[in-house]
Design a protein around this nucleic acid. Structure first.
Lengths: 198, 198
DNA sequence: ACCATACATGCAGTCAGTGCATTTTTGCAA
DNA sequence: TTGCAAAAATGCACTGACTGCATGTATGGT
């Protein structure tokens, strides 16, 4: 009875969510290192072993939705006109994604705090970002019809991500910082324009 | 007999070195994950427990000399004239450090390969780089007399490191790449100059 | 109601990393 | 030389993440 199909799906989603919620709270209250998988599974009313069919590592609990963000960026970039200058296309794409972040400030901030205070989580997040850099590099290379040994695409990707990262950190840690899209845009502008005036 | 003092120091250095050598070779031959601390210690003729008084983690074996590099960069930056534009000072500092790398191509490449093929080592290296970014950011803030909430220093630091990283990767992976200092310099120039012409 | 399948669970194991107690080395001085 | 204190190496017992494999249990379609 009840739903026709998809109870399985629903249960899965619900359990995954429960693990995430419970874990985040424990991390904040007791600290990441002091919290064991056993505790997390316990509070989520699952067997410890089951945890690992939902998350590959403890770190992933904090970084669960990282991969969606990359998709967002790439999609956004895909939609920019082909004749737009690469840097401008990146600027627009990142600003658009930044606008998404804006509405999730608290959620993102919570995770950022845990991440920032835990080396292994932090390291893993950077590792995921490196994956983004690679993906971005490839798209840019295609877009620019760059030769395989042209460093330009990687340089652009790395720099754009650096702007995003610096902006994000600023946005999350400085008390009354401007809105994220504004920070991102001005970061891009600064690099393109008055880099040599400071 | 023999040396008056410093035998302790010497032994320590020698053992550390032995661990590093032995480990690198094992990593290359058997793979990072398949190699256990026990094996490494065994080949270096030390007790497993002793390993941890030389290296905090297995990852550190690959990244042993990362911290010295940061020092190099900061020192170099310190020596640039105070009235030089920040971006130019960074350019010169990074190019100087890049020149050091040049002579160590093989050593660096070996480690890079292990790092690139192992997530946890790679993640840790990025984490160390984030530390550099922070240190650089602080130096630049001082240099620019920037206010605490000015994003400029972080942006400059992040970007400069992005250039360095992109150049390094290019240098190590593209068959007949130009010399590293040249790559670094042209990366800096490209960002400062013709970013908006591509 | 029945069955195949997906999923949760239990169990036993590996390995990195840590704290603590003990033994061995080494530097120095009598 | 010998003796001694500090430094370093070692051994031992432990925690906790993560894995492989076998088994139980719920779910969806017939």
């Amino acid at each position: 009875m009840a739903e026709p199909t998809g109870r399985r799906e629903r249960n899965k989603r619900e359990r995954r969510r429960r693990l995430e919620d419970v874990a985040l709270e424990l991390f904040e209250r007791e600290g990441f290192d002091k919290t064991t998988i056993e505790q997390i599974a316990g509070e989520a009313e699952l067997a410890p072993r089951t945890f690992f069919s939902y998350f590959a590592t403890k770190d992933d609990l904090v970084l669960a939705d990282y991969s969606e963000r990359l998709e967002r960026i790439l999609t956004e970039l895909e939609q920019r006109p082909a004749d737009e200058r690469a840097w401008d296309a990146l600027r627009a794409s990142f600003a658009a994604v930044a606008a998404d972040y804006e509405s999730e400030h608290d959620r993102i901030r919570r995770r950022f705090m845990i991440m920032a205070s835990n080396p292994s989580v932090f390291a893993r997040s950077l590792h995921l970002q490196a994956g983004w850099e690679q993906a971005l590099t490839e798209r840019l290379a295609a877009r620019l019809s760059a030769l395989a040994d042209d460093p330009t695409p990687r340089l652009l990707a790395a720099t754009a991500l650096a702007v995003m990262r610096a902006s994000l950190q600023h946005w999350l840690t400085v008390p009354r910082a401007p809105a994220l899209p504004a920070l991102v845009q001005s970061g891009f502008d600064r690099l393109a324009g008055d880099l040599n005036t400071r």
